[in-house]
Amino acid sequence: MRLTAITERLAGLGGGKWEVHLKARQMAAAGADLIEMTIGEPDVPTPPELTGAAAQAMQAGRTGYSDGRGEAHLRAALAEAYTDSRGRGFGPENILCFPGTQTALYAVLQGVAEPGTEVLVGDPMYATYEGVIRASGADMVPVPLRPEAGFRMQASDLAARITPRSRAILLTTPHNPTGAILTPQDLRDIGALARQHDLWIISDEVYEHLVFEGAEFVSPLSDPALSDRVVAVSSISKSHAAPGFRSGWCAAPEAFCTALLPVSETMLFGNQPFIADMTEKAVREGSSVASGMASRFAARADLLVQRLHAETDLRVHRPEAGMFALIDVSATGMDGDAYAWDLLEHGAAVMPGSAFGDSLKDWVRVALTIDDQSFAAAIDRIAAHANRKTRSVA
């Protein structure tokens, strides 16, 4: 039977990136003594006030069809929140609601990219970005995020890769997997290139509320000079420990939202009213769990840096936000893929950096979301394993 071109474009971009994680789950199910640090989920359950709000809304009959743009009261709440946090005005007409950031990204890319165009994105990148770009038919153009620049996108690296086919720049700030945050100057420089070459800026800001002490998040949405070309996507998955509820949105120019609405309605025709009610509560009241998560994740990152730098030849990039840290494993003589598979046999599961881009071939990503006791035990295993490997290299 014949299939379409999109299946060819996306071939190999699905679960293959998560082979180490899936193998770890199989080993754990079979009884292996294994500490999993592969994926990042909040380390607390969804707050009961939110699950209670969703249940109450269901019991009240909020289970019918939704407005294709998203429930009006949720869009109003989001518009008010963005007006307060970005320093310029937003209205409900600037918001479209989706089931999670991933769906929002897919729809937005359908709206700005197509076959024959290019989307520039930082390398390393979140594992699904290549898929959402290629699904549109566009070509992905990786822009190296260099460790010596703190893994922040540099305008000079971006400028060198812009062509007449370029259509959009996909940013992540705070970044996954590096935890880097773009500075105001970074955004001014990137914004100047976007204006010069008439490019969209798509900003994935899902980790906005998991910024560590001493760091500061700034959104390109805050710059009035970019108001006609920035589309931000986010959700309550990280900030409110509610990944399974799949509630996200995009904030964008009114004309963009109007043009994208038929794409959104073709995909899903609005999010679930009872989840919208819960999300409105989350947006209006803020998160009761985000600051605690950020504090714990920062402390675990600091412990990882302190111990591995003191006890091994591994080097850790300390994140400024988010749920992950990166470890340079080149001192072991292995690349990140070989290292992750070898470490799996010694009781700890981490993600090979290559799952997030070619530039991380000598790195692995570790989740900071497991409990403190398990995290310390995992560091024990990583340190012992690294020292065995570096001695054998020497």
Rank of each mutant, 00 (worst) to 15 (best):
L158G: 01
D313P: 00
S264Y: 12
I275E: 02
V263F: 09
I327M: 03
V211Q: 00
N94C: 10
M125V: 07
A192I: 06
M27T: 00
E36N: 14
G61N: 09
Y126S: 15
R195K: 15
Q59M: 14
I236Q: 02
A77K: 01
K281C: 02
K361P: 03
I382Y: 06
I95D: 01
R9Q: 12
E71N: 12
R365E: 05
P99F: 05
T178D: 04
R167S: 13
R307I: 03
L187D: 02
I202L: 10
A149P: 00
E285K: 13
S392V: 05
P92N: 08
E36A: 12
E320S: 15
H317N: 12
L304H: 05
R9S: 11
G179F: 02
E19T: 13
T369N: 06
V366E: 01
A301K: 02
E345G: 13
G292P: 06
I95L: 11
D157L: 14
N271Q: 15
I190F: 06
M293F: 08
H240G: 00
G286W: 03
G214I: 06
F245G: 07
S288K: 13
M334S: 01
A255V: 11
V350D: 03
Y126E: 12
L344I: 04
V316D: 00
V350P: 01
S291L: 11
V289F: 11
D223E: 13
E280H: 04
R167I: 03
D335Q: 06
L105M: 14
R307F: 07
L226K: 05
Q196K: 14
R365K: 13
R86E: 14
E205N: 10
P147I: 03
E345A: 15
V143T: 04
L260G: 00
T101H: 07
V283M: 11
G244L: 14
A340P: 00
A367H: 08
T101Y: 04
S374R: 15
C250W: 01
K17D: 11
A383D: 07
K23M: 13
T178Y: 04
L193E: 08
T117M: 11
L96S: 02
L145V: 01
P262T: 07
D277Y: 03
L314S: 06
E19K: 14
G64Q: 11
T7I: 11
L3S: 14
I181Y: 03
